[in-house]
Simulated scan of single mutants.
Amino acid sequence: MKKYFLWTLVICSSKMMAQLTPADSLVQSGNYQEGIEMYKSESESEFKMARVYAQIGDVYAALDSYQKGFKRDSISVQPRFEYARLALGNNDPVTAFNSLLPLIVEEPNNASYQYYMGKTHEDLSNDDAAISAFAKAVSLNKSYRAARIEWVKLLIKKRRFREAILHAKPALAIYPNDIKINSLIAQAYLGAKRYDKATEHFELLFSLGNDTEYNRKNLAWCYFNEGQWQLSIDTYERYNNDYEAANSLVHFIMSQAYLKLGKLKLSQDYIERAIVFKTPELHQEYLQLATVYVRQEDYRNAFYATKRAKKEKPDDDVIGYQYALAADQYYAGKSKKLEFYEEFIKQYLESPYQEIANARAEDLRREIFLAAKK
């Protein structure tokens, strides 16, 4: 029986070899140009030529060969599918769409057709249709990793984070160490502000050797939001050393973390670095610096830092009110304090802080009046 089976294989193999044309043999051995020249002399070889042209990267010659072949045979499925994919890869999603649509009508349960239609919709900036196509591909083939990845990526892009998490999980059940899927689900948890879960996946990515700029910075941000101040600082420090030493926002967050730890000198150092690195708007950094000074009971420098913040963003009523408060803490004279509240009341007529500023101004006027009567 075994000898018969082997003999059958030999016969089948011999028949297949016999079906090969000389041009086919040349192409199989890598002699593409010679093979193309021989195909030109053969009948009904347009699709074969198209595949060789595609293989050597001559896309336009490949597309032209497919079109010539369709004049002879417009029904065969494989060339039509190949043509659609080639058009898509050549940044021609309209042609790809027109080629794929009849195939999907003929065979709606073909997962690959749905996947490539999803890619086509994506290139046509029709994200909702792309999401539907990728979802259909995955429903037809649960292990279709490429379709699931594109699906989840688009859900994240559309800020549909809960759905992205839900549809990424089945892939992790099959391949728990899949770097791409772990990266996507980490992004989805990050977008959903599920910092504890995002941390788990970012840490796993590092253990798998996927230490990237994006992962390092966002792991530090997750630690910060979980209240793991020192871990956040340490991770940001490695980020500064390895990737970007002059990121103003990173130094701003590190200042906040040091402030949470009560390390006021370091908090001040890092907010001053943030100010140096950031241009042109520095209002947040100056307010953070003012907060550090207040914690140190250095009201003079807190006032001047707030003054700088107001200069950076003069139309911001929140900063305007904080400037009046800083003056209230810094100046001893009640008349001087009053000047800043009156300035605020006059400048920010629509501010919700008007009532409280007016109340404080009225108290100061009363105190000034009573002091004058003595």
Rank of each mutant, 00 (worst) to 15 (best):
K263T: 12
K265H: 06
K265R: 11
L266W: 10
S267I: 00
S267N: 07
Q268L: 14
Y270A: 11
Y270I: 04
A274K: 04
A274Y: 07
L282N: 11
L282K: 11
L282Q: 10
H283W: 15
Q284K: 14
Q284Y: 14
Q284I: 09
Q284G: 15
E285R: 06
Y286M: 03
Y286P: 00
Y286S: 01
L287R: 13
L289N: 15
T291N: 11
T291K: 10
V292L: 03
V292T: 13
V294R: 15
R295T: 09
R295W: 10
R295C: 04
D298C: 02
Y299Q: 11
Y299F: 13
Y299H: 15
R300H: 14
F303H: 10
F303A: 10
Y304C: 10
A305K: 10
A305I: 07
A305M: 05
A305V: 11
K307G: 05
K307W: 03
K307D: 14
R308V: 04
R308M: 08
K310T: 04
K313V: 02
D315N: 11
D317F: 01
I319S: 00
Y321T: 00
Y321G: 00
Y323N: 00
Y323K: 00
Y323S: 00
A324T: 01
L325K: 09
D328R: 04
D328H: 13
Q329G: 14
Y330H: 03
Y331Q: 07
G333A: 14
G333L: 09
K334D: 15
K334Q: 12
K336W: 12
K337I: 00
L338E: 02
L338G: 02
F340E: 03
Y341I: 07
Y341D: 09
E343D: 11
F344S: 03
I345L: 14
I345G: 06
K346I: 10
Q347I: 14
Q347P: 05
Y348D: 05
Y348G: 04
E350Y: 10
S351F: 06
S351E: 04
P352Q: 05
Y353K: 04
E355F: 05
E355I: 08
I356Q: 08
I356L: 02
N358F: 03
N358W: 05
A359D: 13
A359R: 14
A361I: 08
